[in-house]
Design a binder for these strands. Structure first.
Lengths: 106, 106
DNA sequence: TACATTTGCAACCAATTAGTTGCATATTTT
DNA sequence: AAAATATGCAACTAATTGGTTGCAAATGTA
């Protein structure tokens, strides 16, 4: 049951949960109202998201607010970096090609 | 069997494959040599990656080269955008706080 | 033509997953 | 104190997953 962020965001329900609490911290009940599943299913997703530290909890009376841990999202961004490096290089190559073409054409 | 990119990158082997062919297009056999599994297992991963268009194939004789479709990776980047917007806002808020503090302090 | 190489696909298997229902605990309200 | 509310956890289930072995098709080589 070793879970990482990539497996966490693989599920569409969990991505939806992340998008919701990104706007505002929410309780499991409030979250469940946005979905077509039971509260327990949402609770299970929250457990997974908590396990890999994408969300944190804040108890307030009998309610528990789930907050997005935005810093953890940056890990995905960091992984993307290696590919972003490629598409930016390809873009600048295209850029160079275009400017070279321009020079030749007239 | 409807698969999307997020499910595709959830598997560590598939992320490793993507990282490898990002450097250079490769055949299934060549890829399998980098891993501790069978060629067929790699082949299955490639099938999944092909299905969601993260890689493309290019037949060359009896060999098949698998290429990274870098444009598809941008979809992940696009999804991250909504969260990046948040962490950039929080950063500039911190920035503002710091400059305000500086004004008050002396 | 015969043989080796490269590959994809199907069948099977063990482990994991996302979901359900039911229950126990803690807090608030009456 | 009793009832209602908010939640987490455990047990169960159906579907999916990542992996295996075995085979067939296509291409290249002797």
């Amino acid at each position: 049951m070793r879970r990482d962020i990539f497996q966490a965001i693989a599920d569409p329900s969990r991505r939806a949960i992340l998008a919701l609490i990104a706007m505002q911290a929410m309780t499991p009940n409030a979250l469940a109202e946005h979905f077509d599943t039971t509260r327990q299913a949402v609770s299970k997703h929250l457990r997974i998201l908590t396990e890999c530290e994408l969300v944190s909890t804040q108890q307030q009376g009998r309610e528990i607010y789930y907050h997005l841990q935005i810093d953890k999202m940056k890990e995905i961004d960091r992984w993307l970096q290696q590919f972003r490096a490629i598409w930016e290089t390809r873009f600048s190559q295209l850029d160079e090609l275009l400017s070279t073409t321009k020079k030749i054409e007239p």
